[in-house]
Design a protein around this nucleic acid. Structure first.
Lengths: 335, 335
DNA sequence: CTGAAAGCGCTTACAG
DNA sequence: CTGAAAGCGCTTACAG
């Protein structure tokens, strides 16, 4: 039989009640664990048996309609392909436990989560919504608890978890300084995400403080290796003429593009051009050469966000946080 | 105001009906586009105005309860962090259009989607479920249409879309043969996924046919760079003593681990050891050296799967497919 | 063309 | 301790 051709009959609470010789109300109490002191032990046992025998599962639509809210938690993110998110998801899931069911949603290619995405998911009556790297400036309130991840421009009062990039950036700039770089270029992302703005700004400030000049000849690209490679190809000669000896990219993925072009044009990394990124993706240890990067611990971000969502669901307040970051030195900057 | 502290009031069809001076039934017809010839133009217009003014959105729980099914499509996958999935997702989304809303679910770390995952999502009354790389042997029927992706062992009759790996593997083996390899090792994945079994088997068969010996000293690892590196470290010396000159990994991620260990131990790739993988991930063009890989076109897989799900939803039958694959030659095997 | 009403499958006071 | 009943917000015959 085709697995999709013979829809099994849906088992309802009424069927369970009939089999257990009791009422629907009692079934509901038992399956929701609200039977303590409300249902006698023998009846509860009969209900549980019937549930097992019939394979009953509470219908989500009916339940969340009656209750007003369900057990779904939605995580909206711009780009799940970034291995960084696997970590975030793991962190969220671990803290959510199995009282809640996590589902993910990716925005259209390149777009940041916006209010419209939130609206679309409010319909589902989720217990809460997590939004990663929301579009800058959008008002993101909803009829359900919302926690923002990596949203340094979140409006005051919004529940948000962020990275404190100052430590990581300071280490990066000190490292570049140590390696003798005096003139560097910055390869930014094109996405209008606040965290990119912060990375760029902090980097500029730290360079200024350390006496490093950031070349006017910055470039920007979509968050793909190909786009970054194209942007680099375009800018490389100008960088060289401008005396640039190092490129810092707003994300590891962008830095990969720089590495690819360097390899293709015979440029030695780090001797001719040092390269560094942000994220410290797993693959950054196997690029040619291995990539120096400001590590952004994804699982911790996910954990912190989930904790705050749970608090919001319970009506408890939670302080915003900023997680510390650090530099991972590798061959692309001479270790 | 905290974005999560002041839940906006939910707008219902009753509120829209009152504002438009009509009934709930009429509102339902209009918002669902079923008003042609059933609702007069002026009333329909008033309803639409009221919808806009109030920002009404049909409640998903109520709607799918009344209708029996909703507009959600669930994609269950073992590992979204693999950039391969970004492509699959893009393909699914593009063909689904916006009549359906796609949500994703990742299984617990390392686990393949199983029947229990299906059960959990049936509750949501989705229009259909897509399951990528399901656990081998599980019966995966559900009360909703299900399409399997990358499930070469799917029971007859199940709707599945797969890769035809024979062409890609044949090219890979011919390429290795051309480069003079006579003894190779295979680094398998540990996940009990059918597609891995197929890759391994086809590779062995093709090698046998081409007169290449596959070393008994195979290894296996979880689908992470770290795990693959550990497995490689463990096996490397034995491979060398066994006369192995090339390693083929069941996935690019695994091949990355081999590359890392090779680099760390001063082994030259491909001179001392050639390396190849499956997937052709975007980052495979920037590894050290760039990785030869059997390309598995993710977006096409997603598109094919979504098409078949739409057919199943409409009650139409659809033939299973096997998408063609090919080899991408790069430096890790001497191009 | 329009709306009152039944019903989707639950949960939760409420009365017994 | 137990169950009848109202209600969650829709959709869809059905009667007008």
């Amino acid at each position: 039989m085709p697995s999709s051709a013979v829809p099994a009959r849906r088992v309802t609470a009424a069927m369970v009640a009939e089999r257990a010789g009791t009422s629907i109300a009692t079934v509901s109490l038992v399956v929701n664990g609200k039977d303590r002191g409300r249902v006698s032990a023998p009846i509860a046992a009969r209900v549980r048996d019937a549930v097992d025998e019939l394979g009953y599962v509470v219908d989500h639509a009916a339940s969340s309609l009656a209750r007003g809210t369900g057990d779904l938690v939605v995580l909206i993110a711009p780009d799940l392909s970034n291995p960084f998110f696997a970590e975030v998801i793991r962190g969220v899931r671990d803290t959510l436990g199995d009282r809640y069911q996590l589902v993910l949603s990716v925005t259209e290619r390149g777009a940041q989560p916006a209010t419209s995405d939130l609206r679309r998911f409010e319909r589902l009556r989720p217990a809460g919504i997590l939004v990663d790297a929301p579009a800058a400036g959008g008002s993101l309130d909803a009829a359900v608890p919302v926690v923002l991840l990596d949203a340094p421009d979140a409006p005051t009062g919004a529940v948000a978890v962020d990275y404190d990039l100052t430590s990581g950036v300071a280490e990066l700039v000190a490292h570049l300084r140590e390696r003798g770089h005096e003139r560097v270029a910055y390869l930014d992302g094109t996405a209008r995400v606040a965290t990119f703005g912060v990375r760029h700004r902090l980097f500029q400030e730290a360079c200024a403080a350390a006496g490093i000049t950031v070349s006017e000849l910055g470039a920007r690209a979509d968050l793909t290796v190909d786009a970054a490679a194209a942007a680099t190809e375009h800018a490389l000669e100008a960088w060289h003429e401008d005396g640039v000896t190092a490129v810092v990219a707003a994300a590891d993925t962008l830095a990969y593009g720089v590495l690819r072009v360097a390899a293709a044009t015979g440029l030695r990394v780090p001797e001719d051009l040092a390269v560094a990124g942000f994220d410290d993706l797993p693959s950054s240890s196997v690029t040619a050469p291995a990539l120096t990067s400001v590590a952004l611990p994804g699982a911790e971000l996910g954990r912190a966000a989930a904790l705050r969502l749970l608090a919001a669901v319970d009506g408890t307040a939670a302080e915003p946080v900023a997680l510390p970051t650090r530099l991972v030195r590798r061959a692309s900057t001479g270790g």
